[in-house]
Design a protein around this nucleic acid. Structure first.
Length: 617
DNA sequence: CTTAGGG
DNA sequence: CCCTAAG
């Protein structure tokens, strides 16, 4: 037939050194060990040929079909007769190849353990292609689990698969969920394939279980629809996906960005399975999408409980954590928003904070789509994904230095948003409405900025006179910040379009320094003297073991002061009171207060802080 | 969820 | 402030 790449192929001489190995146990064993992979190789090569026949050679359809069937047969055989020789099937495949391409690639070698070892088994010392293995890869391979993650011919990296004696040099493979990508690491093999790297893509598709799915709602022209999904297994069980990758979405009704709140991977799994493996009985995805690379960021689950924040973080970073909250992640927007200008005057309610939200970022949106899908379908897929998640309605979350601002009543000044500094990390995130514990009134159509704007920027420090116990929300720190930056006031607020799909620029989510930007601690808010006073007073009254009560009594309106904070503050106060004034830092606390602290501390440590004793100093 | 303490 | 073991 036509040039299929095999015409140039010369069956190499079997090195004598290998022949001499005939009969040796180890080799046989090795062959067995690599048999499966040999099939993968074979299937891969055949797949490439197949692809080529379809795209380049326009081979007679029946030939392609036969070839495919042969491949399938091999694969099937492999599955059922684990450990058995596949001579028959392999030979048949070779025969089919010959029929299809007019040349026999010499797959017979696969059928002979010795031959295999000497000629094909990449692990063989005299593997004929061994010279092509670069040392790095070899080493990596020797390390047992180097599996380049390849997408579209581009190595994405990450060793993850642990397969014994797997000649990954020959074929780099990676399985993403059901999507398996294959490419060649060997020049020879490439040569074998006619040096058409592009072949890799379609080939992958052959091994992609999700093919069928794609063809369902995707372009019919997609190569995916051309092949059944029966070769999935050819490349072994799906790999755990331990790295960032595009996850399957092919069917909008099945796509998901991440597991459910309760992390129900299994359900996802089930669905995928259902979709992907309809034609394949007995094929299970044990490891399918068990592990997602992305970690749950703390802020994702942190602010959804309105009151408690100190301790709800169980399992936050367990990679196997199943509670990754996809719904929340969904529309999270990185707050790279830059402040184009700010001008806030402590005493003026006219002063506004000017913000420019350059773009919303959607971090960790996982999409899994066959390589053969069209760009258009990818776009649609992403759109569907985002739409379905955000369609319910959105909330806007505000992150200041990585911390979500819970208190909607807090002013920008109080929150720190008004303070300009290049390192200020103000971010806005969009989150699905339904996933919120709903404290925020933001709605989809509400302009974020207008909201901000409408809120007085300077709710004044409440005079702490007698009502100390009440508003500690009002915090100091007005003075140091807001004074300059007046050059931009002419610049109107950049109108933020309705939070909508259009507003979502799907761009890579940059975590500033490495990762976990959102793990950052809360904004530091030094206790003011007034607060200290209130705290002291409350402790004097209630004792040192009832921080919750203290909170209610004296800081009920200071949402950002938790009882843990108060307890901590008391701790530091006691410490502060005990050290020399020279060693103290921060806003000086009146010695009088410190004395009271010590007194109260002494008192309550002596007397069990349970009773309601009214101890006034 | 609260406390109590170490970090 | 954070993190957690305990209760």
């Amino acid at each position: 037939m036509m040039d299929c790449g095999f015409n140039d192929y010369q069956e190499p001489e079997v090195p004598r050194s290998c022949r001499s190995a005939r009969g040796r146990g180890p080799i046989k064993k090795r062959w067995e060990g690599n048999r499966k992979h040999s099939c993968e190789i074979l299937a891969s090569v055949a797949g490439k040929l197949l692809e080529k026949s379809d795209n380049s050679l326009h081979t007679d359809a029946s030939c392609g079909k036969n070839l495919h069937d042969a491949c399938d047969s091999v694969i099937s055989k492999q599955e059922v007769d684990e450990g058995q020789f596949l001579n028959e099937e392999l030979l048949e495949l070779g025969s089919s190849l010959e029929k299809a391409f007019g040349c026999n690639p010499g797959f017979q070698s696969f059928c002979d353990p010795d031959k295999f070892n000497s000629e094909i088994n990449p692990m063989s010392k005299d593997f004929r292609w061994s010279g092509l293995l670069n040392s790095n890869k070899k080493k990596a391979f020797d390390d047992s689990n180097f599996v380049p993650d390849v997408i579209g011919g581009k190595v994405l990296g990450v060793p993850e698969r642990k397969v014994e004696a797997e000649p990954t040099e020959l074929i780099n493979q990676s399985v993403k969920d059901k999507t398996i990508t294959v490419t060649c690491g060997s020049e020879d093999l490439m040569k074998l394939e006619g040096k058409q790297p592009e072949l890799v893509g379609p080939l992958c598709n052959i091994h992609t279980a999700s093919v069928r799915v794609v063809s369902r709602d995707d372009d019919e022209s997609s190569l995916g629809s051309a092949y059944p999904s029966t070769m999935v297994k050819a490349l072994g069980p799906p790999l755990d996906t331990g790295n960032k990758r595009i996850k399957k979405i092919s069917d909008s009704s099945h796509w998901r960005v991440a597991p459910d709140v309760d992390g129900n991977y299994s359900s996802t799994d089930g669905k995928v399975k259902e979709v992907c493996c309809e034609e394949r009985t007995g094929y299970t995805h044990e490891n399918t999408q068990k592990i997602y690379p992305f970690k749950k960021r703390k802020f994702f689950n942190q602010d959804f409980s309105t009151s408690n924040r100190g301790s709800n973080r169980d399992g936050a970073f367990d990679s196997s954590d199943k509670r990754i909250n996809g719904k929340q992640v969904t529309a999270a927007i990185g707050g790279s928003s830059s402040m184009t200008g700010q001008h806030v005057s402590p005493n003026s309610k006219e002063c506004n904070v000017k913000l420019s939200i350059k773009s919303f970022k959607v971090p960790e949106l996982f999409i899994d789509i066959p390589m053969t899908a069209t760009v258009g379908s990818l776009k649609r897929t992403v759109m569907d994904a985002v739409t379905s998640i955000l369609g319910e309605g959105l909330h806007v979350g505000i992150l200041v230095q990585g911390k979500k601002v819970k208190d909607d009543n807090k002013t920008l000044v109080q929150t720190g948003i008004s303070q300009y500094n290049k390192h200020s990390n103000l971010g806005f995130i969009l989150e699905p409405k339904h996933s919120q514990t709903a404290t925020s009134p933001f709605t989809k159509n509400e302009s974020l900025l207008s909201r901000i704007k409408s809120q007085g920027l300077t709710r004044h420090s409440v005079s702490l006179g007698g009502s100390v116990e009440n508003d500690f929300n009002a915090t100091p720190a007005l003075g140091d910040t807001l004074s300059n930056n007046t050059n931009n006031e002419s610049k109107a607020l950049i109108p933020v379009p309705r939070i909508s799909m259009e507003a979502l620029a799907v761009v890579p989510f940059h975590r500033k320094s490495g990762h976990h930007e959102y793990l950052k601690r809360r904004i530091r808010r030094p206790f003011s003297v007034s607060e200290v006073e209130a705290l002291v007073r409350a402790v004097e009254k209630l004792g040192t073991g009832r921080w919750r009560d203290v909170k209610f009594h004296a800081f009920d309106n200071a949402k950002h002061r938790t009882y843990v904070d108060l307890k901590d503050k008391w701790k530091t106060l006691v410490h502060t009171a005990r050290i020399s004034p020279q060693q103290r830092r921060g806003e000086p606390v009146p010695q009088e207060l410190l004395d009271r602290v010590l007194a109260a501390q002494a008192y309550w440590s002596y007397r069990q802080p349970k009773q309601e004793a009214k101890v006034t100093v």
